[in-house]
Design a protein around this nucleic acid. Structure first.
Lengths: 208, 208
DNA sequence: TAGAATTTACGGGTTTTCCCTCATACTAAT
DNA sequence: ATTAGTATGAGGGAAAACCCGTAAATTCTA
């Protein structure tokens, strides 16, 4: 439970110092917080994967190529939206990174207005996914509090079985099921059976 | 009611007759059913929006431009994956159509193997969305059978309220709630309260 | 060995669901 | 006008499910 909600920031990854500077100035003028990196390696070392905001990445960089950086970021759990900014892209590369889940690819030089608009969109997307992740994580933490048996009982409870049936199913007494069930309700922080089922269903559907 | 599950087909929309022919041959050799259209207008007129499969669209066509065809298709409810095949795309156009939800954009001329692979992917994607839509539609049809009052009662039931509370909430007798509740269970084709909640939750989350 | 976790019995209480009969009222179709 | 369907209600009864406190045994683990 550290401060999970750090302020969103635009991570700029571009080896071209002067262009990077232009991006920083442009975005800061719009009130965005920015952080700059000269290459993908530096970014991966410094930036935590759960950073909120979005990334602005140059495609053609020494070291890790932008397209590979995207893949590496995803495999490391970075979920922030990624916007590519490049002067060297061709159609095939553009299609590739977009298929890889990039938010957009913008050609250099680009209008400040377009850049700002995309970053705004990136923040909006990140906001939604962050909210989703927050819900999932909270539920995960609750779930982690359950003992193995309690989890087992919960599965059957949300499956719609009555205490009596659960008892027979697990070959334990009805009273025991009641005890576990009560604990489950407590630990999952729900008031009603309906809430328990709803939480469970939305969790397994979004987390899967 | 009608036969909803027509066989998946690749809709080819390209004004270049000889290239179209090559696509047809290539895909038919792999066992795909194909249908060809000379322009977007013809396609929109002839093809029903719930057609399953995927679309192969040329970008630069007389009449409707490919990028606009994508937008028009989406606004008309076409949900099939769209693959662009073009010789005239630039980076900006590629990014635009990919942002618009295209599955991929491939440059002409292209390898037969790549084309087939993408079409296969398109079919796979369509399969999943079609399955989802099937579930949603079935639930919608069940929902449509409910009377206004029954729907109202159901909302409160899945909200976790007891019959007594629902009765007070709607200012009707408990007995009446019971009647409605029983009908809801029948019409929604669920056995248990848990199933009702689960169906409801997954419906509102996927249909929204 | 202390402490969770798991289990159970006993005994009791509350709540909910489910079903019954009987009855009224409105609408739509025949 | 009659019939069918829908919605609504009263009042009550029986079965089932659920909830809880107390006390205690067992097992496994830190």
């Amino acid at each position: 439970m550290g401060k999970r909600a750090t302020n969103p920031v635009v991570s700029i990854i571009d080896d071209d110092r002067s262009y990077r500077r232009w991006i920083e100035v442009t975005l800061q003028a719009e009130g965005f917080a920015v952080e700059s990196y000269e290459c993908g390696g530096e970014f991966l070392e410094v930036c935590p994967p759960d950073r909120s905001g979005c990334a602005l990445i140059d495609l053609a960089m020494p070291g890790i190529h932008g397209a590979n950086l995207l893949l590496e970021m995803r495999s490391r759990g970075f979920q922030m939206p990624i916007i590519f900014l490049t002067a060297t892209a061709d159609v095939a590369m553009t299609a590739t990174v977009m298929r890889g889940g990039a938010l957009d690819l913008i050609e250099k030089p680009c209008e400040a207005a377009l850049l700002v608009e995309r970053v705004r969109e990136g923040f909006a997307v990140d906001c939604k996914t962050a909210a989703d992740r927050g819900v999932i994580e909270k539920q995960s933490r609750r779930l982690a509090q359950l003992t193995a048996r309690e989890r087992q009982v919960m599965e059957l409870v949300v499956g719609g079985l009555a205490n009596k049936q659960i008892a027979r199913n697990l070959s334990i007494s009805e009273r025991t099921v009641e005890v576990h069930r009560a604990r489950v309700m407590q630990k999952m922080e729900v008031e009603s059976f309906a809430d328990l089922v709803a939480r469970h269903v939305s969790f397994v559907s979004t987390a899967a």
